[in-house]
C-alpha cells in the first residue's frame, strides 16, 4: 500500500542549523497494516509522517501510495488519498464552522468541489448516523460550532473526519498526546475500532511504549532519522516494554534515558 524508498530529508541545508532528520529510509506497509512508531525526541518519527503527508517536500527518494508515485505531489493532492489526525486537537477541525459543516468538508475529501450545496439534508442524516456510532453525544448538536467542543471531542471528530472517505492510509501524529489520560484512552480505543472495522492501513506515531505495543500489528522504532527496529506479527504480540528498552540499547549502544527521550513506559 505504502512504499517509501531511500527517502532523506535535511532541514536548513547549508546553514549552521543543518539537521539530517531522515536518513535514507526504506519502508513498505501492506494493506491493512497498523504500524505504531516510537522513538525519542528528534528521532524523525513525526518527520516521516509529515513527509508522507506532504507537509515538507522530500530531498530524494520516492514515496508510492496505492501504486501512485506521490513524491512530488503537493499536500492537498496527497490528501485525496490520506486521512490525518494531528497532535493538536485544534488543528484538524475548523472552529468557526458547525459540526455538520466540518463533517461535510471531510466527506468531500478527494472529490471535486463545485457549486453544489456544501451540505445536503440527506447527507446530514447520514453524517448524524456516523456520529451516533462514535457515542460522543454530538449527534444532536450538528449545527453547534466546533470551537465549543472539548479537545477530546474535537480529536474524536477529526478521527471520524479522517476516515469518512476511506483513506489509503491513516496518519496519526501522536493524536492522543495532548489529551488527559482518560480521554486519550477513549480516542485510542475508537481509533483501534475504526481501523479494524474498515480494515484501514494506519501509521501511528506515539510517545507511549505501552500503547505502541498494545495497538497495531507492527512496530517501528526510530533513532537519528533511521529505522532501527521493525517487528510484526506474533513476535510483536509478545513484546514487553523491557524488551523495547533493551532493543534500543543494543541498536544504538546507548542507554535509553527516560527523561532525555521522553518515552512513556506505561
Amino acid at each position: 500500500m505504502l512504499k517509501i524508498t531511500k527517502v532523506s530529508k535535511t532541514f536548513n541545508l547549508g546553514t549552521v542549523n543543518e539537521k539530517k532528520a531522515i536518513d535514507q529510509i526504506n519502508l513498505t506497509l501492506d494493506e491493512g497494516d497498523f504500524v505504531t512508531v516510537i522513538g525519542g525526541n528528534g528521532a524523525g518519527k513525526s518527520t516521516v509522517l509529515n513527509l508522507i503527508a506532504g507537509v515538507y517536500p522530500i530531498d530524494c527518494g520516492t514515496i508510492e501510495l496505492a501504486g501512485e508515485n506521490i513524491s512530488l505531489y503537493p499536500e492537498y493532492k496527497r490528501s485525496r488519498l490520506i486521512g490525518r489526525v494531528f497532535q493538536d486537537p485544534m488543528m484538524g477541525t475548523a472552529a468557526d464552522m458547525g459540526i455538520a459543516e466540518n463533517l461535510a468538508m471531510a466527506n468531500r475529501r478527494g472529490k471535486k468541489r463545485g457549486l453544489r450545496w456544501g451540505i445536503t439534508q440527506h447527507e446530514k442524516e447520514t453524517l448524524k448516523k456516523r456520529l451516533e456510532k462514535f457515542d460522543l453525544g454530538l449527534e444532536n448538536r450538528l449545527d453547534a460550532k466546533v470551537g465549543l467542543l472539548s479537545g477530546g471531542q474535537r480529536q474524536a471528530l477529526t478521527l471520524l473526519m479522517a476516515t469518512l472517505q476511506k483513506p489509503k492510509i491513516l496518519l496519526l501524529d501522536e493524536h492522543t498526546a495532548a489529551l488527559d489520560p482518560k480521554t486519550a484512552k477513549k480516542v485510542l480505543t475508537l481509533t483501534d475500532e475504526i481501523i479494524k472495522e474498515e480494515n484501514l492501513t494506519a501509521f501511528m506515531v506515539t510517545h507511549n511504549m505501552k500503547d505502541a505495543i498494545t495497538y497495531g500489528n507492527r512496530l517501528i522504532m526510530m533513532n537519528e532519522g533511521k529505522i532501527i527496529f521493525d517487528i510484526k506479527g506474533e513476535e510483536k504480540k509478545n513484546l514487553t516494554v523491557k524488551d523495547l528498552l533493551q532493543k534500543f540499547e543494543t541498536a544504538t549502544g546507548e542507554e535509553l534515558n527516560d527523561d532525555a527521550v521522553l518515552l512513556v513506559k506505561d
Binding site: Y76, K77, S79, F86, T93, A95, M105, R108, G110
Partner: peptide, 12 residues
C-alpha cells in the same frame, strides 16, 4: 478558518 485542516481535506 484553518488552512492546515483545509489542506488535509484535499482543498487546494
Amino acid at each position: 478558518n484553518n488552512e492546515r485542516m483545509a489542506s488535509a481535506l484535499s482543498v487546494n
